[in-house]
Design a protein around this nucleic acid. Structure first.
Lengths: 295, 295
DNA sequence: AAAGAAATTCCACTATATGATAATTTTACA
DNA sequence: TGTAAAATTATCATATAGTGGAATTTCTTT
């Protein structure tokens, strides 16, 4: 039993509310006391009412309960991502074994996919990694799952986003379309909205291919515009300036990719200038570096 | 009893998971079935495990459960805000009576504050509104609450943000400091981060005073810089470009307010140009209009 | 269509969440 | 410091969350 009650007690005291006041119209004082001491679990329905009286939603409550850390799922993707960026093979291995362990405990496939995500990161980071053959079938399994699921939420989007690099182009195009369509109802939900745009960005970058092949023919012009249009559809809010800058950058990349080098560079430099004006130096620097690679 | 189980069933099916699979290691199949049919409530501890197996957090689950709408609290502030912007007095009155009713039902003061928030909006919108005297004591009550609470979460920040306009300058300065300090631990939580910056923005705008008094002496120079520094502290992430544009705008306002009209206009125009470059026309337009009022 | 397997529901039973009230501790104030 | 009031906890009763396994329904396969 997780002792949520203790957190409720802390919050209640912070707001200067008494047991009786909080219990009134919701449950008995004696039970609330018991719950707050961690001597009893609580029904979801009751908890809902209590949080409503505290003018707090579940998310905020759990954030406090977990000592101001994001929830497990978010943390998993976060720490996997940062272990990858820091090329921390040890940490990756540790994360993988954790997920495999949970998979055994709960007997549900998804933990297996999580482990696979880590494997992808491992293979990208660790030169000595040997497991090409294992992945083939695993990747197929994961793709199957993603095709099967009827609605894509945060999990599916993040999972796909992390493994997209290892898939064939055709597969990526199909899955990204699926992602776009099957997550449509979540577009009003900030966290998932971000995940959707991340998938679209990564898809487009994937389609452009590695920088050192920019001289080759560009096969995916149609798909490029298709996904750019999705992105513009999704990133509508005017206030979402970063995404708008990124779109500018992508359009610049497109121009360069299709031979209009000068126009492309103009767009990229515009994006860089924008960021510099707002003192977003790191972001500006990223684009500059990218531009150097291309030129 | 709220029938969360039905939503769980929908999600489970969407993911192509069987009762047995989901129950494994968590609870009995028979109970899960009962719960999913809406025949039983569930313990918070169990629910946590089930959601974990579904790779879903509470927030996302509840978002689906509420038919892809934000939670009650967020909706309250949203609909109050939009009723205010649309000068919809009827809607405001309706919202107020709802809150008062809940207050009676649950016997907790906060609903009273919510009603007060609506009253503030009413008084600002409705020319015929007569209730000046009532508010005086009510406002005092609300301020007392805000001073008393040890930690400011989403609720306190939004509540304060909505009523700030009716408070005395000294009170605003003190409360905004309190808000900044007492919400510190939430800065990593996006929704609350936004609420904190909103409070700081509104405080600074309040300190500048109404546009038609810009020729008068500027009393709050120190406080202006104080809160700007808070803002820069809080809005650190480079990717938060909108906030950065807004800060630019505020700094422009400051210049104008303190007599350096030309410098101020340069800053404002820079902000406008930035937004135009990103096709954020509405936002750009807002600043332009503001600039017109000042000049 | 029928048999067999898988998934779900029903039913009797147990564990525990929740309530009513009394006992205890804490707080407030003289 | 003592005392009354307020707030919290302990005790016991009961409603209901949760289990195991049999019965039923749904799905597959031929």
């Amino acid at each position: 039993m997780v002792e949520y009650g203790i957190t409720i007690r802390i919050i209640r005291k912070q707001k200067g509310i008494t047991l009786k006041e909080l219990a009134d119209g919701v449950c008995s004082v004696s039970f609330l006391s018991k719950f707050e001491r961690g001597d009893s679990d609580i029904t979801l329905g009751l908890m809902t009412k209590i949080l409503e009286k505290l003018m707090m939603n579940f998310d905020e409550f759990l954030y406090i309960h977990h000592d101001f850390q994001p929830d497990k799922l978010e943390q998993f993707f976060k720490s996997a991502g940062s272990a990858y960026l820091n090329r921390d093979v040890k940490h990756l291995k540790q994360l993988k074994s954790e997920q495999l362990k949970k998979g055994q405990q709960y007997g549900v496939e998804t933990y297996h996919y999580n482990a696979l995500l880590i494997e992808v990161y491992e293979s990208l980071v660790d030169a000595e990694y040997q497991g090409e053959d294992v992945q083939e079938t695993d990747i197929r399994l994961l793709a199957d799952y993603l095709f099967r699921v009827e609605v894509w939420g945060y999990y599916e989007l993040m999972l796909y986003n992390g493994t997209l690099l290892l898939l064939e182009a055709d597969m990526v195009i199909m899955l990204s379309r699926t992602a776009y369509e099957k997550s449509a109802r979540f577009r009003g939900y900030p966290k998932i909205h971000d995940a959707i745009t991340a998938v679209l960005f990564n898809t487009i970058i994937y389609l452009c291919g590695p920088v050192n092949r920019f001289h080759e023919a560009f096969t995916y012009q149609n798909e490029f515009s298709e996904f750019i249009s999705y992105l513009e559809e999704v990133a509508i809010p005017e206030s979402n300036l970063v995404d708008r800058v990124h779109i500018l950058q992508l359009k610049g990349t497109y121009e360069i990719r299709t031979g209009n080098k000068e126009e492309g560079i103009v767009k990229m430099k515009k994006a860089i200038q924008l960021l510099r004006n707002l003192d977003s130096t790191k972001l500006a620097h990223n684009i500059e570096e990218y531009l150097l690679l291309i030129e």
